[in-house]
Design a protein around this nucleic acid. Sequence first.
DNA 1: TTAATTTCGGATATAATTATCCTTTATTAC
DNA 2: GTAATAAAGGATAATTATATCCGAAATTAA
Lengths: 144, 144
Amino acid sequence: MFSKSCEYALRSVLFITQQSEMGKKVNLTAISEEIGSPIAFTAKILQQLSKNDIIQSTKGPKGGFYIEQSKVEEIALSTVVQIFDGNKLYVGCGLGLSNCDAANPCPLHFKFVEIRSQLKNMLENNTIQNLVEDMHSDLLWLKR
Amino acid sequence: MFSKSCEYALRSVLFITQQSEMGKKVNLTAISEEIGSPIAFTAKILQQLSKNDIIQSTKGPKGGFYIEQSKVEEIALSTVVQIFDGNKLYVGCGLGLSNCDAANPCPLHFKFVEIRSQLKNMLENNTIQNLVEDMHSDLLWLKR
DNA sequence: TTAATTTCGGATATAATTATCCTTTATTAC
DNA sequence: GTAATAAAGGATAATTATATCCGAAATTAA
């Protein structure tokens, strides 16, 4: 459904948010261990998240990654997904036809439209905050 | 959503079905031209479909691919998707966590479960026949 | 039997994704 | 200022998905 990059990004963001809420910065090593992702690859993901202004970072000792509360409240999951996977997930034809749309639908068109719009809505209507709220009951689930 | 292989497979099956209903076999060249797919790659897809007993084939002049009416009526889209993409589409955690399930859910778990089950149901509850019925009004949509 | 047509199957090539390695830059503490 | 820590960024490697090529096998028609 999502690319590995996107999955790692979402998990990283959730972990960073959890730690930021406790006033803690986290470094690359801690993140990749916590979310069970390859460390060097995760570094690239975090760079992307940082460049796209989802998370913040500071270099040097006591440095690491963190996220501002305003971002936590404002940023939807769709924003993160967009950065890594674009909009291919909920845009385009289920059969891969480039000229398929409502006016000229392939046989699967309308069946897909509803499912995709639900997925889109889910990602657009849930902020990072919404997810982290659900996390508090169980802190173990980020490990793979 | 689906892999290229899976998309080509679904489109091939639809075209073959359409032609089989008119009593015609179709060869590789015709299929790849009709559905707009790379010819040699499509050959591999058709081999897979044939080995998995979705479609039939005969070699030699006047040979080609066709599909039995019983298959058209019985085979669900999920069967084709399963062959090429396995069940990764509607199974497993949205965040890629291996130990995520209803008993130990990640934050996205229940939000994904419903969307995925809809997708699963859509693929399981629609036979090739169902799709081809929708095709008759417009024969052009398979071209990409 | 020969030639033409068509699928089958193995080997290989290309592209995209995932992943690693290493050097540079910034920051902190001493 | 030196050493340690940590992110940033460039180069490269490994893996998977996508795609091509070519010869073999089967079938048909003449």
